[in-house]
């Protein structure tokens, strides 16, 4: 699934993209192809533009130069098949958990019955059906993030764009959510573009890691993660895992030092 290049249109195709902010080059000549079903993580020091690249793919911010296609469409036109998950849960505090999860369908004027059904389904998926009527302020950080994920999944996206979604959580909550994310990934067969600055998280989740350097932001290395699927908590204890983390760490150190 990971190694074979599909002759069909790639899910995400970034070709010679440059992004400038008021003259400063944030991203320089980025080319990246993500095939259907891949879990690709962008890893790099702060200021390398990994979040910016994610914003470009989502169409929330336009590229200065180059071309981005999502399933053969412009990012704006591909919004229906994409969902963005932010670093903060960004829940609407005045809505209950269920109302937050149903937001996307509501904005798209989906029928009430369908909405209800999907919300229940998504809350079961992230194991939060027992807090459907609660308000965000009553939830823990990890629970809020799961609500945010449920909200992103409710419109059945094919592509997930995740911008350091677990960065604000403690390590235990983060590990648990990583495992949960992979369980869903195996079930739902998404394509994922994930941003993090945590090495262990990147290695655990990804089928491929893309390492970026800063000033200007550019891709320096790519690293395949050939750990067997399904990955569980035990995967983190294997010697192969340690090996890849060491390898990635060495590459990343080279990038930061340079």
């Amino acid at each position: 699934m990971v190694s074979a290049r599909d002759p069909a249109i790639p899910e995400i195709s970034v070709r010679s993209v440059t992004k400038r902010f008021r003259g400063a080059v944030a991203l320089h000549d980025i080319s990246l192809t993500v095939e259907r079903g891949e879990f690709v993580t962008l890893l790099g020091p702060s200021g390398c533009g990994k979040s910016t690249l994610l914003k470009l793919v989502s169409g929330l911010s336009p590229a200065s130069d180059g071309c981005i296609e999502v399933n053969g469409m412009t990012p704006e036109n591909a919004r229906e098949i994409m969902s963005f998950i932010f670093q903060d849960p960004t829940l609407l505090p005045w809505r209950t958990v269920a109302e937050n999860v149903g937001l996307g369908l509501e904005l798209e004027h989906a029928a009430r019955d369908l909405r209800k059904e999907r919300v229940v389904e998504m809350l079961q998926l992230v194991r939060l059906d027992h807090v459907a009527r609660r308000y965000p302020r009553e939830l823990s950080g990890g629970m809020k993030m799961r609500v945010s994920i449920a909200r992103a999944l409710v419109s059945r996206p094919r592509i997930l764009l995740m911008d350091e979604p677990f960065a604000a959580l403690d390590e235990m909550a983060r590990d648990r959510l990583n495992e949960e994310l992979l369980r869903l990934y195996a079930e739902q067969k998404w394509t994922v573009l994930f941003v993090t600055h945590s090495l262990a998280e990147a290695v655990f989740l990804s089928s491929r890691i893309v390492i970026l350097a800063a000033h200007p932001g550019r891709i320096t290395h790519e690293l395949r993660v050939d750990l067997p699927w399904p990955r569980t908590a035990e995967t983190r204890e294997s010697s192969e895992f340690e090996e890849i983390v060491t390898q990635a760490s060495r590459l990343l150190r080279g990038v930061v030092m340079a």
Partner: peptide, 10 residues
């Protein structure tokens, strides 16, 4: 980000 969220849902 909330504005972006709404924009992603057109």
């Amino acid at each position: 980000n909330l504005i972006h969220l709404f924009m992603m849902h057109k």
